[in-house]
Design a binder for these strands. Sequence first.
RNA 1: UCCUCAGUAGCUCAAUGGCAGAGCAUCCGGCUGUUAACCGGAGGGUUGUAGGUUCGAGUCCUACCUGAGGAGCCA
Length: 450
Amino acid sequence: MNTPANTAITEKPVTTIREIGQHEGQSVTIRGWLYNLRESGKLLFPIFRDGSGIIQGVVPKNAVSPEMFESIKNLTQESSVIVTGKVRADKRAPGGYELDVTDAQVLQRVNPDDPYPITPKEHGVDFLMEHRHLWVRSPRQAAVLRIRAEIIKAARDFLDERGFTLTDPPILTPAACEGTTTLFPVDYFDEQAYLTQSGQLYIEATAMALGKVYSFGPTFRAEKSKTRRHLTEFWMVEPEVAYGTLDDLMVLAEEFISFIVARVLERRRPELETIGRDISKLEKIAAPFPRITYDEAVQMLQDAHAKGLIENKFEYGGDFGSPDETYISSQFERPVMVHRYPAAVKAFYMEPDPERPELALCVDVLAPEGYGEIIGGSQRAESYDLLIKRIHEHELPEEAFRWYLDLRKFGSVPHAGFGMGIERAVAWICGLEHVRETIPFARTLHRLYP
RNA sequence: UCCUCAGUAGCUCAAUGGCAGAGCAUCCGGCUGUUAACCGGAGGGUUGUAGGUUCGAGUCCUACCUGAGGAGCCA
């Protein structure tokens, strides 16, 4: 960090607030922003943040020049500043250390006539989302974004270490995986293209080439959903395994999630504490996860209705609604894997259960604490004849799936894969109310700005 | 698409149909250990928009706009 460019500004070692404890008793420089300023007569308490943490500075009037004292006293919230001072351990400081400020170079002072809008007070959702580009500076939001990054790294490390190859599917696609009403259309020269809903069909192709593959990227759904679990643009990680079966997939899913949670607990505990997550709930997350069939889940729901625990009676054959998923997941402390749904309510590309062909070899992983479905996966239809029949049944354009059907003509094998929604996983692991806080700039039904 | 709720100062919110207010933020003043500091003072408003009822509307009625939560659909 101590490059010539930095030493031009100051001769003291440049450090971060996170690592400032290593410099106790020394004079150091930190580069950041004013988070808040308290004063008590001839004593100033400027609080600085630098992206790594927060530290309180102390400036007695008689310790610095009158000009320096005035300069710090006139600092406004979020003014950028390079601060030099001596690191001192102090029991009164929340982070354990304070900085006895000797110098503060103001790069840009925020104009008090147009002050920083996000004050250290309560704000509403609409206001914060309108100022998301500034809201990300808040300690809580910064912690969530660090955990998100850790979850993504953990997901990729897990797959990379197990012999999966990252193969990036296209974002611009000619057709839908599922219904066309949920696609975002874009002009593609003289043709109509759509933003991808899932990389799945493409990674089925690369799985036939490379064996074990995954994709990680943005996906888009034009669903008019206004709930705490929905974004129109969200990120998915999707592994796909040639010669994989539904049973293989469930083992992969539970090990995958367990690895990610363990990694966050290992490396992002301070951030989990910053956001006030109940860590004991995460410490219970370890494979194996409970597995129940769709039939068993339906029985649970009908028993619950009989006992008056849930409002609506669930009819066999339908897909679970949000309240149903919440009830099922609330019965377990670990994620629960629900498998073998009726094929009629699932996507066209799923392999039927050979023992009960009306069921699909699929699995949904429901996160605990009511966070709903974080993973959906299946063994894929293997036979050309079945697949083309399903494409027709779902009234999908056969022409657009010509290449996909080729995969069943040229060495078709059993294969399986799943997709995990990053934002829902982050919301669950962080214990957040809404997925909009799990991504730097959320795209929701009514928000395209900032 | 449907259901519910909300829109008043920069922000968070008050105001029985009867003078539009408080806290925070901003500005001025005070305080040598403050922890969303505190104390005193100042400035700051076309009450989302358009109609209607009424002696009188922030408040009641209608329509619309914007946002939030939920349903459906989904990760």
